[in-house]
Computed example of a mutant assay.
Amino acid sequence: MSNKRISDKMEALLNTQMTREAYQAQVYLSYGSWAEVHNFDGIATFLYGHMQEEREHMFKILKYINDRGGSAKIEAIEAAPVHPKSVGECLQNILQHEIENSAEIDKIVNLALEEKDWATFSFGQWFVKEQIEEETLIGDVIAKYSLAASQNAEHKNLYEVDKDLKTNPQSATIPREEKV
Rank of each mutant, 00 (worst) to 15 (best):
I6W: 01
I6S: 04
S7M: 04
D8C: 06
K9Q: 14
M10L: 14
M10V: 08
E11D: 12
A12Y: 00
L13Q: 14
T16L: 13
T16N: 14
Q17C: 04
Q17G: 04
M18C: 14
M18D: 13
R20L: 11
R20S: 14
R20N: 14
R20A: 14
A25Q: 10
Q26F: 01
Q26Y: 06
L29S: 11
Y31C: 05
W34D: 03
V37E: 11
N39M: 12
N39H: 12
T45E: 03
F46N: 05
L47A: 07
L47E: 06
L47H: 09
L47P: 07
Y48L: 13
Y48D: 10
G49F: 15
M51E: 12
Q52C: 03
E54R: 06
R55S: 01
H57P: 08
F59I: 15
K60Q: 08
K60H: 12
K60I: 04
I61G: 02
L62Y: 15
L62M: 15
K63P: 00
Y64K: 15
I65C: 13
R68C: 11
A72S: 13
E75Y: 05
I77E: 01
E78W: 03
E78I: 07
E78G: 10
A80L: 02
P81R: 01
H83L: 00
P84F: 02
S86E: 04
S86H: 05
V87E: 05
V87M: 09
E89Q: 10
L91D: 02
Q92G: 00
N93S: 13
Q96D: 06
H97K: 13
E98R: 09
E98K: 04
S102N: 14
S102P: 06
A103I: 09
I105A: 07
K107F: 01
I108S: 04
V109K: 02
L113D: 15
E114S: 08
E114I: 06
K116Y: 05
D117W: 06
T120A: 14
F121S: 08
F123L: 05
W126G: 13
V128A: 07
E130R: 08
E130Y: 01
Q131Y: 15
T136N: 10
L137E: 05
I138T: 03
I142G: 00
K144Y: 07
Y145T: 00
A149F: 09
S150V: 04
Q151R: 14
N152A: 11
A153P: 04
E154P: 00
L158I: 12
L158Y: 10
Y159E: 04
Y159G: 00
E160Y: 06
K166D: 03
Q170T: 10
T173I: 12
I174L: 07
I174H: 06
E177Q: 14
E178Y: 03
E178C: 04
K179M: 08
K179H: 13
K179P: 05
